[in-house]
Amino acid sequence: MNLLDELIAVISSPMLQRSLLAALVVGLAAPVIGTYLVQRRLSLLGDGVGHVALTGVAMGWLVGSWTGAEPNDAYAVLGAVVAAVIGAILIEVVRSRGRTSGDVALALLFYGGIAGGVVIISIAGGTNANLTGYLFGSLATITTGDLIMTIVMAAVIMAVGIGLRTALFAVSQDEEFARSTGLPVQVLNILIAVVAALTVTVSMRVVGLLLVSALMIVPVAIAQLVTSSFRRTMFTAMGVGAAVCVIGLVITFFQRLAPGATIVVLAICVYAVVAAVRPLLSAGRGRAADPHPDMDDDVNVSKAGARE
């Protein structure tokens, strides 16, 4: 059987179709909000929110075991959404206050999130093994219901992130000016935090909470190497995100590798290659051009070798 037949066999499996589709929409959606986070120097926000979301997963599990829900983790995603949104708003409040203790407050939130999750899951009668799927992704077990929820959430993320592009760019680029225009800066900041939290929970399925941030940030880091406008950076990052998610997942159909980690490693490899190749690409243009042609020279210098 050659590779093509194998690929066709893979693609005709409903389970693999579902996971491919989930990887595609998450790959498209995650870099949208990642672009704003990089712009505001909050690249690690996704990480922090991911940690907090773990407590939410465990809380959902606990509620599920109390109410005798079937399956046990019926409320886990809901719990993750609630905890992630609360965590993201808390981080935004700490950030906007600009207190020096903000750094420590964030650290407390991160570690509290992970530790809280592990403690609560044991109270709920689960083990750390139950958390593994949330920590490292669980694309293989995605159901049709999960897929629909993933698509709906990704659609919301893209609608807000792309639809309100100019306003969200304005507050991320120069917050002080944005306030002077009358824009409701606080509302927009919280909107970014909430959409980031949704992105974390929707990406949890694909790469897991520990690697969520990579899916939001690495495609943006790749895109900004080759673009010169905000708009193009966002759309390039979306394309890169979708491509690495799908290709990374397809690789794991043939090699027994963990999908989430494979996707992230692939993305980082792409970054390394693009960063290495970029100087070669831009060598031809730009180098010779005077960046400030409207500036007159300040002093006259004789041609090469002024010193005798």
Partner: peptide
């Protein structure tokens, strides 16, 4: 001082 912003390029 107009904020130049960080990593993301903007025209």
């Amino acid at each position: 001082r107009a904020a130049v912003g960080s990593g993301i390029p903007a025209t």
